[in-house]
């Protein structure tokens, strides 16, 4: 028997609102520190290399998840990649239609076995294709904060 079958006006039931009163303070970690500093200071994307597993991690990690070696070798993986898959977001989290639909893509970056999830820009949704070559567009250096949003979006090459 659901609430509405027992009580026809929900205000008749004893209910109240409350919350869990915490906020979170995150650190980017050892690998994250290098990754975001390279984006902020130099506008480059770095990956970390496991020579024994022959893998280049992007996002970079301080260890190889396959052999648990600590990764000491870092390389620039370039700023170009291809659209591995994408979606066009039509409504906001609140369920409101978006005036400007947002294109989100998984971008496989050349020279890495991983990739980045990011926005696509400077392209219409109907022109996006899986396999399309794209490149990162960085914010002007002055505005960068060491965040993944220092990359404004990826645009078609």
């Amino acid at each position: 028997m659901s609430l509405v079958e027992r009580i026809t006006t929900s205000a008749d039931a004893k209910v109240w609102y409350d919350n869990i009163p915490i906020e979170s303070l995150y650190t980017v970690g050892i690998a994250g520190e290098k990754f975001f500093r390279a984006i902020k200071d130099r506008g480059v994307i770095m990956g970390s290399v496991c020579p024994s597993c022959n893998l280049t991690y992007l996002p970079p990690m301080m260890y190889c998840e396959r052999c648990l070696a600590e990764l000491e070798e870092w390389v620039e993986v370039g700023t170009k990649g291809t659209v591995h898959t994408y979606t066009v977001v039509g409504v906001s989290l609140e369920g409101e239609p978006l005036e400007q639909p947002e294109i989100l893509a998984l971008i496989k970056v050349e020279g890495a076995h991983g990739g980045l999830v990011h926005r696509l820009g400077e392209v219409k949704p109907e022109d996006v294709e899986i396999g399309m070559p794209v490149e990162a567009v960085f914010k002007p250096k002055k505005g960068r904060e060491g965040s993944i949003l220092d990359i404004e979006h990826f645009k078609p090459v």
Binding site: Y26, T27, G29
Partner: peptide, 12 residues
């Protein structure tokens, strides 16, 4: 008190 490492880096 506060590690620079992320949780997964500590676990590693």
């Amino acid at each position: 008190r506060r590690a620079q490492e992320t949780g997964r880096e500590l676990a590693f």
